[in-house]
Each structure stands twice: as C-alpha cells, then as structure tokens.
C-alpha cells in the first residue's frame, strides 16, 4: 500500500500556471524528497497530493484508485506541517488521538495506539502537556505522532525541520529516517535543503518553476546531473561551473567540476590562481581560488589540513574523468 501516481497534473492560481503538466510515480515504501529553491512549486505539489489544493487538470491515483476528487481525509494520507499545526487547546495525548477520534475508533484502540506512538517517539513524559509547553523538537515529534497513529498509506512532510535549530535538525533527520526504515511506509518529503534531500531520500525529485528537472537516487543525481541546474543544486559546496573558452576546449558550453575532483599540485597546474578564504573543517579544507582566468571563483577541496595561506599561488588539476559537460541548452552531454 502507498503508491502515488500523478498523471498530467497541472495547477494554476488564476492565470498563472505554477505546475505545468507533470507525471510522477512514487512507489510503495519509497522515501521521496521534493527539493528545489523556494517558489519552485514543491509545497504546492505536496498539497495537491494531500488534497489541500484542488488540481486544475489531470489525475492523482493512490494505490491504483483515482483520488483526484477525494477530500483530504479520505485519501489515507497523513501530513506533518512546517508549523507542526498542533491544536493548541489540546494535550499531547488529545492531539495524537484526534484523527482516531474523527475516525470514530473505539477508545480502547485509540489509547493503545496513542500509547504505542508515545513510546516510539519518546513522548511519554509530556503526554498530558499542551503544545505551548513543549520545545520545538518535542512539538515536531507530537506532529509525527499524530501522523503515525493513523497508520496512513503514505506520510507527507512539508519542510518539517525548517523551524528547528541546526543540531536538532540533524537529530530529527535521523529519527525520521529511522522511522521510515521501521515502518516501511511511503514518505513524501518537501525541503529546500539539498543536504536533507541527499541524506534521507531513496529518490529525489528536483523541481524548478513547477517542472521536474531530474528524478533519481541521491548518488545518481550527484554523479550524473541531467542539467546545469541540478549540477549546481546538488552537492555542497557547489559544483564549479565554467563557461567560455575553457569549456570550449572540452567541446561543451559549460563544464562542471566538483570541488572534490580538483587536485592541488606543486608548482604550475592546468589551472592556476591565488588562494582566497580557506575554510578549515578539520577533515577537509575548502579553498576559494581567485584570479584563475576562468571567469569564476573556484572552490577546491583538499583532504586534511593543508597549509596554504591567503594570497599563496596555487596550481590545480581537474580530474578529466570526473568532469561534467553541458551544452548550450544546459543539458548534459553524455
């Protein structure tokens, strides 16, 4: 259970079409992440699946049945909102029990499920508190609890971690991944953070302006970005993208080399420049290289602690076999 299919789905607000015709299949049990810059339509797409927005044309099928005109509650999906959307006047217990109560489930079963969810999510100590008395991470867990008790065929997450601080975000990321491994339920997750996408997803859907730029596993996207946009969006720090004369040497409009695919050499290299800022992370060091004559500043990764100072001359050799080439339309040249 939990296969979601979008067939020629479009969405317009007034005269502006935010989602042009779009096909997408989310397989059962998959952790799918929609990622893209803000305003790319990823949240709208999620809300179309949820049924919170009506689609303008096309069909949505859930588990093989047409769900296009079903109200949200009848789609068998559960959603975790960015603001958590907890009911402020209800205790944690009542919040989690609410969907079950709406489903007219009997009290014994409700209690059983709520207690089980509280156990799984470590909420037992706060079960009788109101959301206002909880920290951000705890609220997040309550929102997830409210979603899992329904035993939905798929979970929808709308940027659920964006209101948490960095440390908590990493923790919750793991918890959600862990939850997916255990429940094996389909999850659709929206984020603008490509790190979240890379670390959590089985399948990433990169969106821009309502259009799917590429679908694939995190490593597929990393290794073979289909176009310049995906190349620049996936990976941190960003891929170095070079146009002009240097790219022409490789029969391309644009060439892309990831910072980790450039070697620092002694003396003159294929590319030469001066060191700008050095970011020491301990395990790696990222150098920003200026004055290369390539038009753009380059970012280069060196393993470990490399003793290059601001202003030092540096020689660089890009690894040719790891180089990405794109044509004038921005598409990958195989």
């Amino acid at each position: 259970m939990g296969q979601i299919e979008l067939k020629q789905v479009t969405k317009s607000f007034g005269n502006t079409q935010v989602i042009p015709p779009l096909d997408l299949t989310i397989h059962e049990g998959e952790f799918t992440v929609f990622v893209g810059p803000s305003g790319c339509g990823k949240s709208t797409l999620l809300r179309l699946i949820a049924g919170l927005e009506d689609i303008s044309s096309g069909h949505i099928e859930i588990d093989g049945t047409d769900a296009t005109s079903l109200v949200p509650a009848k789609r068998g999906l559960a959603m975790v909102f960015q603001s958590y959307a907890l009911y402020p006047h209800m205790s944690v217990r009542k919040n989690i029990a609410f969907p079950l109560k709406m489903a007219k489930m009997d009290q014994a079963e409700i209690d059983k499920r709520v207690n089980a969810a509280a156990e799984v999510l470590n909420l037992k100590d706060y079960i009788d508190r109101r959301p206002g008395q909880l920290s951000g991470g705890q609220r997040q867990r309550v929102a997830i609890g409210r979603a899992i008790v329904r035993e939905p065929s798929a979970f929808l997450f709308d940027e659920p971690l964006s209101n948490l601080d960095a440390a908590l975000r990493v923790g919750m990321r793991l918890e959600i991944s862990e939850l997916h491994k255990r429940l094996k339920t389909t999850m659709v997750y929206v984020t603008h953070d490509q790190v979240e996408a890379m670390t959590m997803a089985d399948k990433i859907v990169v969106l821009q302006a309502g259009v799917i730029e590429q679908i694939g596993s995190p490593l597929e996207l990393y290794r073979t970005p289909r176009n310049v946009f995906v190349a620049g969006f996936i990976g941190s720090p960003k891929m170095n993208l070079i146009t002009g004369e240097e790219a022409a040497k490789y029969d391309a409009h644009t060439i892309g080399v990831r910072p980790e695919h450039i070697d620092v050499v002694d003396g003159e290299g294929e590319w030469n420049g001066t060191v700008g800022v050095a970011e020491h992370l301990g395990s790696d060091t990222f150098f920003h290289i200026h004055n290369t004559g390539l038009g753009e500043m380059l970012t280069v990764r060196a393993i470990g602690d490399v003793s290059l100072k601001h202003g030092d001359k540096i020689g660089l050799n890009p690894r040719k076999n790891e180089m990405h080439r794109f044509d004038a339309a921005g598409l990958r040249i195989a």
């Binding site: 949820a50 999906l77 909102f81 959307a85 609410f98 709406m102």
Partner: peptide, 26 residues
Amino acid sequence: PGEILEASRMDGATLREEIFYILTPM
C-alpha cells in the same frame, strides 16, 4: 493559523467537527 484547519481536515474532521473541536475552542 490556516495550517491548523488544514491539519484537522487531513485528520478527517468534517466541517461540523472542525468548527466544534478546533475552531470554537481556539
């Protein structure tokens, strides 16, 4: 917040239930 009303809709509340359990207390 509108998200709370959406959440209750996702949770299967009918309009009547939404008004009775969520909106009125809030």
